[in-house]
């Protein structure tokens, strides 16, 4: 069984690369989250808003990024999770999810987290604090 407790500062959780962003991904997220802002699903609405095309919900990317921590639910939970939405995610973008241990003590592990697109640009960047159970 994988343990998160043993991760050392500077070590990274395994990267996850998502399939290219599809319209269906965003329609599903709209339905599941209740965020029906049409710039995420309808081309004409995105263009009217001055965008080149539909963009992913920031929360879709943030939600994906958090799944890096799911396998460790027996050891602790995500206590604090912060991100800045730095750049837009477009249809067909290929997003890679990353988390690296920044600091740790006996009770928490602080990670730098990021979602990076196919051009190496950090579209979402922030940190997560994983609280360990005794």
């Amino acid at each position: 069984m994988t343990t998160i407790r043993d991760w050392q500062v500077g070590q990274s959780l395994p990267d996850v690369t998502l399939p290219p962003v599809s319209r269906l991904d965003l329609i599903k997220y709209a339905g599941a989250s209740g965020d029906y802002n049409p710039i995420h699903t309808i081309d004409d609405e995105a263009k009217k808003a001055g965008l080149p095309g539909i963009i992913a919900h920031g929360m879709w990317t943030m939600g994906n990024l958090a799944k890096l921590f799911t396998p460790y639910y027996e050891e602790g939970f995500v206590q604090n999770y912060f991100v800045r939405f730095q750049s837009m995610v477009f249809l067909h973008d290929v997003i890679t999810l990353k988390a690296t241990v920044k600091e740790k003590d006996g009770k928490t592990i602080r990670f730098d987290v990021a979602a990076v697109n196919q051009h190496g640009k950090e579209v979402v960047k922030g940190e997560a604090i994983f609280a360990l159970y005794d």
């Binding site: 998502l18 991904d25 599941a32 939600g63 799944k67 799911t70 639910y73 027996e74």
Partner: peptide
């Protein structure tokens, strides 16, 4: 499903029961 997280801790009752929580949990976002 919409955030592509297949972990059964979010939906499978047996997995939830066997976990330290004794039930299913929800994703952080």
């Amino acid at each position: 499903e919409a955030i592509g997280d297949p972990n059964p801790i979010y939906w499978d009752e047996e997995t939830g029961k066997r976990s330290r929580y004794g039930r299913n949990i929800a994703p952080p976002t």
